[in-house]
Amino acid sequence: MFRYIIKRILMMIPVLLGVSFVVYYLMDLAPGDIIAQMAPQDATPEQIEMMREELGMNGSVFERYFRYLGKLVQGDLGTSLSQKRPVMELFLERFPVTVELAFGSILVAILISVPLGIAAATHHRTWLDGTSMVTAMLGVSMPSFWLGLLLIMLFALKLGWLPSGGREGFAALILPALTLGANQAGSLTRITRSSMLDVIRQDYLRTARAKGVSEKQVIRKHALKNALIPIITVFGSTLGGAFGGAIMIETVFSWPGVGRLTVRAINDRDMTLATGCIIMFTMFMTLTILLVDIAYAFVDPRIKARYSK
């Protein structure tokens, strides 16, 4: 098991190198010059060149990338060109805010999808099953920004119950988490339902029923535990989806997270900031997927047994 974890961690290195190069190179290919944007309107060509040198933006893209890489391997993500502050500092300032939103949305997704998925499976081919599936489909197919604006209009503008944006207090988290969670809940409901349907047809559950165990106990104690195992595997990708979706939601709800920081860096052609944020995102995602895989091995006794051998 230990060797497996080490192997997976080492595999992250080429992934991160590849991501850093692709992002840096693509940012360079995109038209637009951050120096020309940052310079005062009356800047002379000499002044623009001075700025270019001061910010380390002189030389070919490969020269600049290897200079960047040299610092990266020492754990230095560089300094933001537009904000003139260390990228790591900027990322760490905003990252907890995005994590808050991502986990909030996952909590919403779980609270909606698990009961709904179980109800749909245990009432297979009834009106409840149909309602759950239609709701799940709506959750998956509704564009987040549209749902977000709709919720703002209803709960902030019409009813005045919740703030329309910002990050002041718990109330400010509800609408963005609900918007992002609705999308995640859709796919999780469908997975929970199909996983439950697989489990409740197993022989061991039939045996439990034959022994006189109540239906509630059969579902809670025997079926749910096993049905949740596949759900854990999709947790990693759900978290990835939550981070991806956060970029849009953070803009709609003025949520000061990493998503907005990254979008702004891309728009500003701030190569070091954009590359740094994406590298950190990638690292976080690969680590999460690794942790999920390890957790899966611990939850499923069959896998644990295989590794023990």
Partner: peptide, 18 residues
């Protein structure tokens, strides 16, 4: 000074008294 990038969200925040 609050940063609200979306123009429609700024308008709603004004109408809402935020």
């Amino acid at each position: 000074f609050r940063m609200i990038p979306e123009a429609s969200a700024r308008m709603i925040a004004l109408e809402n008294g935020e």
